[in-house]
Design a protein around this nucleic acid. Sequence first.
DNA 1: ACTTGCTTGGTTTTT
DNA 2: CCAAGCAAGT
Length: 739
Amino acid sequence: MSDPFEITDTPEPATTTARHLEGLNESQLEAVENIDGPVLVLAGAGTGKTRVLTTRLAHILMERKARPGEMLAVTFTNKAAREMQERVAGVLGTSVEGWWVGTFHALCARMLRRNAELVGLKSNFTIIDTDDQLRLIKQILLEREMDVKRNPPRTFLFTIQGWKDRALEPDEVPPGEVMDAVGGDAIDVYKDYQSRLRAVNAADFGDLLMHAVKVLQKNPDILAEYQNRFRYIMVDEYQDTNAAQYMWLKLLAKTHANICCVGDDDQSIYSWRGADVGNILSFEKDFSNARIVRLERNYRSTPHILGAASGLISFNEDRLGKTLWTDVNDGEKVRVHGVFDSGVEARFVGDEIESRHRKKENLSSMAILVRTSAQTREFEERLITLGIPYQVIGGLRFYERKEIRDAVAYLRIISQPDDDLAFERVVNFPKRGIGDAAMQTLHIHARARGIPLTAAVDELISSDELRPTPRKALALLMSDFSRWRASSLELPPAELCNMVINESGIIEHWKRDKSIEAPGRVDNLKEMVVGLEQFDSLQNFLEHVSLVMENEENKSTDKLSIMTLHAAKGLEFDTVFLPGWEEGLFPHQRSLDEAGTEGLEEERRLAYVGITRAKKRALVTYASRRRLFGQWKPALPSRFVDELPNEHTDRGLEDDLEEPGGYSEFSSPRQRARSGQQRESISYHQVGTDAGDLKIGQRVFHQKFGYGRISELEGDKLEIDFEKAGPKKVMASFVELAE
DNA sequence: ACTTGCTTGGTTTTT
DNA sequence: CCAAGCAAGT
């Protein structure tokens, strides 16, 4: 990573004057050209927000108002950051390496590494994730002999996170809040938590922001340096910023006040995570005579989609108000369709997708957007049966997988021996006979001496406080670590990692494991080694893993996407399916219970985000009963269904929702006409299977997974290689013979 | 030290 | 209904 204070030369201006401004509409131009003074851009969905931001950045450079190192462009997600980097690089034809373009967290981390000692950390501090956070808090609760049952670590984490989102250190928490939080215990846990983090030289995500703010607040010289440096500041997805991020921005923008924030209050859907839409309103107060620019011309959707979305969102009281328009004509109305239950819904949507696909519409241009991730399952099962390739976006990310986290933990200790959390994770993985008893001894010693666990091991290894088995195992492990640490200075990170996963026994462990997912885990580890090749230092890789790493989906094959509405923000599809529009599910009951009208309005914004993802068509469905925790519950259509304006919706004929039993998918003539394929599967599952007929190689049919052959047979448990769904373990009673 | 059966509770999720 | 996390068994 190049030195952040190194200022790259300004690229030459484009030969044609203002070529980068071509094709911008009037409001976009206003947002791009007014670079001096505070600007708030209210950018509706699909109005070219990213284009404005990147063009503005390019414009500042071309006008020679600032050099690259004097600009700060902040986004919320890595995806947005990457997009901005790529597009700026594209417009200017230069690399943006080393520029201050990135996520809040990445940029704060970058600042913090330069001044870590000011907040009690070393510059090579580890960035920990939620998993580590929870384990740390749990340890603290146990140490304090608190009831982990009554008040789970999550509760404390949530409270602490809330304070960090507002950049409140333990001694800054307002007295009024101290007692409220878990009976006054939270503040003590917070104190312990912060000192434990410092002891293991680690920061959590909230710390990156909070510490960065504190460094600026408490060190006028550093603050002045940054304030002078950043002549122009740009912020994306401004509606999602939390208090700490806003403080950081305000501090940095103080001197030049050339700050441009782009956001859409109607798309604020992360308040439950500390985001504060109020920051949009505060902007005008904190930056006097701020220019407000509205981007309302939509380039994405048809008038009916915009009309439906606008009508819906107009039910929100608390908004700044924008009216999206387009000069595109016609298009399809938003379809609204009621079905009997979630199973029928899945079939209905599945059939729709299949028929669109048959008409040559790419699967990748369609998406199913659900409110809760639990809803994805029924659709997955249906798509597997239909043989439609799909991907669920936002499941486990690569680095969240167990095997990857284990390997990364090894690398963390190599890079930073004080990292107790990583040490605990790997000390007995793979199994080497170090159990609770040994760890207890280590903890006691480490705490008494105020040293990290690895240091405690060093001290105890020659004493007789440890039993022989763990003592030998620890000695071996420690010698491994010092050997790897020595290698880390010479070998490239990829080779080091390869060495570690082999010599530690991780690879062997998974090779020996007979479970279905084990081979995949070995593959993932190998993939990780390959991925490591692009890093020149272990440090850089670890930073990447904690801050930037995302799942790279193979885009090569044409796949349908299933994801939550939250995950869909910022994306667009020709066809969008919006299932589960029922009271209680969407709007979600919990939002209503916990946040009342505000909760409802946020849910409505979520619905707005959902509809505005569609370029050409949207299909809303609701079911009259849905399974909740295993039980069928009756459901009413969501109020959002009623709020969609009639002139933009096509409500079709409602199916006979009252019909009992599982056959209602054939209840309407429309459906009956197109159902050909399912009639078969209905007759199939009426047939019982005689266990005597089951043998290896037998071809069978399964309701969820389709056809496959039995590869293993154990009592009434079968392992079946499904043609579409791959190998799965299923009960014999769920399959029918097929031939 | 590791494996088995039971209780419990179960939005949204990025960094 | 189903997965995860914990207490008691070998």
